[in-house]
Amino acid sequence: MNSTPNLVDTTRSEWLKFRSVRASLIGVLTFFVLTVGLAVLVSFVIKTNWNHRDPARQLVFDPVTTSLVGVFFGQFAAGVMGARFITSEYASGGIRTSLAAVPQRWRLSLSKVIVLLVVFSVLSEIATFLAFSVGQVIYKSGHLPTGSLSNSTDLRAVVFAGVYLVLLTLIGYALGLLLRTTATTISVFVAVLFIVPIIMNFLPSNWQDHVNKFLPSQMGAAMMSPDLTQQAFSWGASALLLTLYTAVLLVVGTVVLTRRDA
């Protein structure tokens, strides 16, 4: 009892908190159902209707992106779990117990980030590799074009689809730090990912080309697509910029945490 606790101890504590509530298990299952389940469903529908597809669309068929389409649904499960990792503590008042145990608030926040980063790196990569692999098996069985992990571009798309999910988990957490309530945080998260892109559709198209590429969802599309679309940043630039967004939000959120009365 006479040694000084450090970041490892707080991180172990946060890891225990993460895995000791059933909501985490339900969240992980939802995440897999959305990311893998929906991808499988979409791949299956494409395979079934392949022969009715117009030949021009057959030609531009992208077996990689279509098998990863579940990422755009799984991102909500990931973001909600990231957000709830802090907002549930504000809801119950447990944040005060946490801060009394770890008054170095930046350390508490960093520990939460480490837990989310590690857990979701593993989960997201498993999910995207699984979605991709099952998708390719389905396509292959229907004699459709397939992607392959031995192709470095395809491999990159699958890996970065997972990276995108990890970043969005952390964005959810950072928004939770700032907004404190689960409902508000999820509303903002959904608005940024879902509603803002819809609003953008109403802008003049030459504006859209300049603005859309800054949206997280567009960056995600660039990161997990083998082909470069003209109106987006490259996958590498997208990954860097989204990482920058995430880092800025995390820093701002943590600074706010350290300044605010709990």
Partner: peptide
Amino acid sequence: ALLDAKALDPKRSARNHLRALALANRIP
């Protein structure tokens, strides 16, 4: 300190609640 007895995550068990606190402060 005991400020508000109900201010903790209702979905966690008593033992896990205390274990998380113990870990963060290196208490056996």
